[in-house]
């Protein structure tokens, strides 16, 4: 046992649907008290992996233990200690905000006593929903529904919180509120496991992440490690380039790796001085000079073609 024992261990995890391979022989350990992310495009196998952890998708092969219990054999016991936030909100539309929390407590076998009512009050406060406690869930905005779904996942005071694309479909304000709540949870010592295809989200929240594509893990590490390992530290981004201009720049701008996506050019380099000097002098172009980020790693590892 190390000081941070793994809360989830997966060995050679596989999931096949007929000839389609959703999860292809992946291994990972998730450390207690950290925020762990699965980053990948749609169809990478992220949700399938989360469902396997919850015991809702049978494994095709491999071994999976959560809280040192085998899954799916002991999944019911495991779920007692997990809070799950699904990709799309599935609040009970027949109930109000507070009734949703009460009813969910019942599914965990919790007693509806004064202590539980206190916890519900705290969760409503946490989710900024105290004022809306008697509202029907279909009258809530998308951000409120999401916050209620997160509050609902905390009703059993879980050790591990699993979030499947927690901010997909939310406006920027709502996303920032969710991020700050997730940070609060991490500071309380909860282990967070989330999937996302938002780089910013992964960079802000995750201590460690894996990049997945086509069911495989492409690499694993902290956001900073991944950036350092895969891309040059600086990027110059040029937008709105036509074919002729692209050719000119490709021939003139040297000593950097150029990537081309639509009408944008990305120039990855260790030392941006000469390129910047050239661009300032030769062209009336708008360009963006920025440090490399997770998105650059992601696009490099998963390719730039369109995913459906």
């Amino acid at each position: 046992m190390t000081s941070h024992p793994a809360i989830i261990t997966a060995r050679q995890l596989q999931k096949h649907y007929g000839s389609y391979v959703a999860v292809d022989n992946i291994d990972f350990n998730i450390t207690r008290g950290k925020c762990f992310g699965f980053l990948g495009p749609n169809g990478a196998g992220k949700t399938t992996t989360l469902r396997m952890i919850l015991g809702l998708t049978p494994l095709s092969a491999g071994e999976l233990t959560v809280f040192d219990l085998p899954v799916p054999a002991q999944a019911r016991e495991v779920r007692r200690r997990i809070g799950a936030v699904p990709q799309a909100d599935n609040l009970d539309p027949d109930f109000t905000v507070v009734e949703n929390l009460r009813m969910y407590a019942r599914y965990f076998g919790l007693k509806l006593d004064a202590a539980l009512e206190q916890r519900i009050d705290r969760l409503l406060l946490f989710a900024n929903l105290t004022e809306r406690r008697h509202a029907r869930t279909d009258t809530l905005s998308g951000g409120m529904q999401r916050r209620l779904t997160i509050a609902r996942a905390l009703i059993n005071d879980p050790d591990l919180i699993i979030l499947d694309e927690p901010t997909t479909g939310l406006d920027p304000q709502a996303r920032h509120v969710i991020w700050s709540r997730l940070n609060d949870l991490r500071e309380q010592g909860k282990t967070l496991l989330l999937t996302t295809h938002y780089m910013e989200e992964a960079e802000r929240l995750c201590d460690e992440l894996v990049i997945m594509d086509h069911g495989k893990i492409l690499d694993q590490g902290s956001p900073a490690e991944l950036i350092k390992r895969h891309v040059e530290p600086e990027v110059i981004e040029l937008r709105g380039c036509d074919a002729q201009l692209i050719d000119t720049i490709r021939s003139k701008v040297t000593d950097c790796r150029i990537e081309h996506l639509g009408t944008s050019l990305y120039c990855y380099t260790h030392n941006s001085g000469p390129q910047l000097a050239y661009l300032r002098d030769e062209h009336k172009l708008t360009f963006l000079h920025r440090p490399a980020g997770l998105e650059d790693v992601f696009l490099k590892l998963t390719g730039r073609e369109l995913r459906d």
Binding site: L54, L56, R76, E77, R79, R80, I82, A84, P86, A88, N90, L91, D92, P93, Y104, Y107, F108, G109, R152, A153, N156
Partner: peptide
């Protein structure tokens, strides 16, 4: 309504 989906994430 996916009510069962929500319930199945509990014991």
């Amino acid at each position: 309504q996916r009510t069962y989906e929500a319930i199945m994430a509990t014991p």
